[in-house]
Write a protein that binds this DNA or RNA. Sequence first.
DNA 1: GTTCTGACTGGCGCATATAC
DNA 2: GTATATGCGCCAGTCAGAAC
Length: 412
Amino acid sequence: MRATTVEEILDYHGRFAKDRDDLDFEIDGVVIKLDDMDGRADLGETSHHPRWALAYKFEPRKEITRIEKIAVSVGRTGKLTPVALLRPVEVGGVTVSRASLHNREEVSRKDIREGDLVRIQRAGDVIPQVVERVPEAGRRRKAAFRMPERCPECDTQVQEVGPFTRCPNRFGCAAQLKRGLTHFGSRGGLDIEGLGDETAALLVDRGLVKELADLFEITAGDLEPLDGFAQKSAANLAQAIEDKKTVGLARFLYGLGIPEVGSTVAATLASEFRSFEGIQEATTERLETVDGIGPIMSEQIRAFLDDERNRERISAVLGRMEELVAPEQESGKGLAGMKFVFTGGLEGFSRADAKRLIEEHGGRVVSSVSGETTYVVVGGDPGSKLQRANDLGIEVLNEGDFVAVLQNAGAL
DNA sequence: GTTCTGACTGGCGCATATAC
DNA sequence: GTATATGCGCCAGTCAGAAC
């Protein structure tokens, strides 16, 4: 249909939202296009979506299902997360069987218990989310959920920290070691090809890795007898580990899993101190002079680095590695000072490649759109970040524009 | 006090590598 | 050749710290 006012567009959208269940096919919104050719030329295009056309999505589909159990998973930092195990239900063409409940206060706030009927949705049409409990008259409910008093993985007494529950057994908890190992070898960390969740768990379970440093002692011969490994895969992983004995300082810092140090803070620290020794010797006051680090973060970083067990562990890792490479100076680089946010899938780049190119040329990739963001790069099927970019007046780039920016910066 | 930002966590689909 | 396991890509919610 052709509309001449915003009200007409909203009315059309509303009618389709109401009738979508009667259609023979699955839709998640309507596309609005400008039919003024001059206007189209002014607005330009993205690689998938012209700026003169936008997908106006419906409210996420909601379905009702029952919580069969609330399980508790232990994360890399020892955080215990309640997870709703759901009776599988199809939501927007996808079967959903699990949804994070985040923390005990969230469970309490929503008053969710095992056996409850709940309304779920896929936030942003992606992430399964328990929206609310659906009351059932006359049904006797199970007891309120309580976080376990002991870690379900290592049986250590847990601690309550704000809304979170943590297992303090950082070094003895197999779950934390497995996830720490995965993090160490992840893309943002040492980027060890072939070291994913399952492999890391296998290495810990089989006793090949009792602490991070053990990773560098593993040979193809150790791996071959393991389930899922054969000669080629064992050789590949052993070689991948060997190749990462020389890595960038920022990757190493990120991989260590220092509290409050994610990829951004790791890169900042690496750029500022340019050696691990420099960071290790920095006082809290010195750390606080670094952009983005305040007193609480500096205390946490200092506490991690001062912990005797951590020092031993890091020393053991460094003893088995060859070199930590300091980042190049970024001043004068083409993307220095620019912040990029991605939404939607790119055709010509993976996110990782795009991030690497940006960072190699002095720019940064951040996770959320704010007034500080320089560009929001939009690919196919963008998420809510595009809307936020528009709201804040942030410049939006399609993939072609992004390539041009990279070319201008000498990154391509 | 408010806004901005990043850390952390987890789910699902798909592509790919690998084992059998 | 087929089946399966694994990793990757993408994204959102929650929270807390930093900055203003």
